[in-house]
Amino acid sequence: MKVFLAFARQSFHSIAIYRFDFWLRVSTVLILMYSIRWVWVALYTQRPGAFGASLEQMITYGVLSMAIENLFYSFGVQYYMSQQVRSGAIDVDLLKPLDFHFHMLARNTGQMLFRLFIMILPAILCGYLFFGLRPPATPLAGFQFALALFIGYLVGFHLEFLLGSIALVTLDIHSIDWAFNALLRFFSGQLVPIWLFPGPLGTLASLLPFRALFATPLSIYTGLLNGEAIINAVGLQLFWLAALVLLSRWFWNRIQARIISQGG
């Protein structure tokens, strides 16, 4: 825990320097929350209660999806790893008496905790006050949402860690990260809930790990998933988490030997 807090403190200092960027990201989230609300209002005038969700539930889903965006998108660990390899500073990281995978997790989570308190919770509060965000369906659902969101965060982290590991071999992160973002944008259920996906696309979306990030926590929060369905969805998240942790460790151990340290 101490390691996590140390990293959180560090990112607090760096944000204090880039205060301007911080305000930008906050205002961006506000604009996005505002707009998604209107999109659902416009769509629901056509078909009220479409697909078993009420307008209030859909607005909550959409506004919350924008509010929690900064939990996942942050130029995270994959950029850090590729930057360290390019500058040659990765050897310092490898010399540290700390498992590299754990080090990255601590670093990322520390920063995430910081963003949680300074950006995401205020954004959620604004959502309640101005954009029609409703409280969780039940108090229990609120708790389950928090849990699912945290697992979603960990799934997201491991996907990024894998990307970063691949970037250590290819030495280029941008095109890989770009493709990843396109997939994530499409299949995570952030902008368009995956139950709206027609036929084979819907099947594909439910088979991919991306829905663990947005779709699962948000469906729990809004009460669109109940009882056993929640247990199944969280179980699937945990399955992906376990698979990705194993894959990350295995892949990292394989390529660690191959790392090319540039200059120094």
Binding site: Q46, A50, V192
Partner: peptide, 10 residues
């Protein structure tokens, strides 16, 4: 996907 499921957007 949005528009086909909801037939149109306003």
């Amino acid at each position: 996907i949005l528009v086909t499921q909801f037939t149109s957007l306003k």
